[in-house]
């Protein structure tokens, strides 16, 4: 595996003097090629600042970001971003297909290639027939799929996602999560996803980076030992999942990680001992989610890893960094 992204000692302070506000400081981590890394942190902890710095949208006041070994200064070519606010990120005056094609224009892709790449990308996200519609004619979840298709059509080396599913309802969120897992498996994409939702970070990630309150630093880095093919019901009720999310929740709240014995937390326990799990403004209690999972999800490949996974009780190597 090669390193796709290397963030070292990244820091950003807004303003100066008395009103100075340090959003992030001394942030270091790497993302390997082909990996889906989730960054989870409390609301307003500087996740967006971090993401904007990686995307080259603003220059951090300290530290460096390297993409494929090259220091990022300005927006790198090989990167695409999916923003939380799809309704503003899509251009309302362009049809769905034109939205997907739009970034390709500036990259000198010919009209024919643009059309075929857009069609292909829309096919990936299950919107092959919606190309001629305008974004407002689609539901929120479909709009976000369009922005995912737009990002994928650029064939980026690194896909950045900023709270991509925070503005859709719970059911749609499940669908989109599974869609992301499928697409990234099929395309072997490298993804860095920022979220405030603990469950989402564990469900999606190969690895979870936990951020502290601002000034944000990486508190812990947890490998997620769930099989690559996941399922909204079985994965979420598996012991490994449940213990991981509790782990992340504890880390987020600045408590010592639980003794690393075999996970004993059952799904019931997770439902009742819920206080620790909510990081931010989430709506429904996360523990209940498995019950309300949508019936017809897009991902049919859930079954395989299920049984095997319930038994997985591998000891995880947790590296804990104390906030300075």
């Amino acid at each position: 595996m090669t390193t796709m992204l290397e963030v070292s000692d990244l820091g950003h302070t807004y303003g100066s003097g008395d009103t100075a506000y340090t959003a992030i400081s001394d942030l270091s981590f790497t993302v390997e090629t082909g990996e889906l890394t989730c960054i989870v942190g409390p609301s307003g902890c500087g996740k967006s600042t971090l993401l904007r710095a990686i995307a080259g949208l603003h220059t951090p006041t300290g530290g460096t970001v390297r993409l494929k070994g090259e220091t990022v200064a300005g927006v790198p070519e090989d990167l695409a971003v999916v923003f939380q606010d799809y309704s503003r990120s899509l251009f309302p005056w362009l049809t769905v297909r034109d939205n997907v094609e739009f970034p390709l224009r500036s990259r000198g892709v010919s009209a024919d290639d643009r059309a075929s790449r857009a069609a292909e990308a829309l096919e990936w996200v299950g919107l092959g027939k919606a190309g001629k519609k305008y974004p407002w004619q689609l539901s929120g979840g479909m709009q976000q799929r369009v922005s995912i298709a737009r990002a994928l059509a650029c064939r980026p080396s690194l896909l950045l996602m900023d709270e991509p599913f925070a503005s859709v309802d719970a059911q749609t969120r499940f669908e989109l999560e599974d869609l992301l897992l499928r697409v990234r498996r099929e395309l072997n994409a490298t993804v860095l996803l920022v979220t405030h939702d603990i469950d989402e970070s564990v469900y999606l990630g190969d690895r979870v980076l936990v951020l502290s309150k601002p000034p944000a630093t990486v508190v812990a880095e947890l490998p997620v030992d769930l099989p690559p093919v996941r399922d909204q019901i079985t994965t979420r009720e598996s012991d490994a999942f449940v213990s991981l999310r509790s782990e992340v929740a504890r880390l987020l709240h600045g408590k010592e990680p639980a003794t690393r014995s075999a996970p004993q937390v059952t799904s019931e326990a997770a439902g009742t001992g819920d206080q620790g799990v909510h990081v931010a403004d989430g709506g429904t209690p996360k523990g209940q989610r498995t019950v309300t999972a949508p019936k017809n999800r897009r991902n049919g490949a859930g079954g395989k890893g299920r049984k095997k996974h319930m038994k997985t009780k591998k000891k995880r190597g947790v590296t804990v960094q104390r906030p300075r």
Partner: peptide, 20 residues
């Protein structure tokens, strides 16, 4: 968000004016 989107996709200056 639109400014960020356009910048993150490295939209060229003319496309930015003409299409955004």
């Amino acid at each position: 968000v639109k400014t960020d989107t356009a910048r993150s996709f490295r939209i060229s200056r003319t496309e930015w004016i003409r299409m955004v």
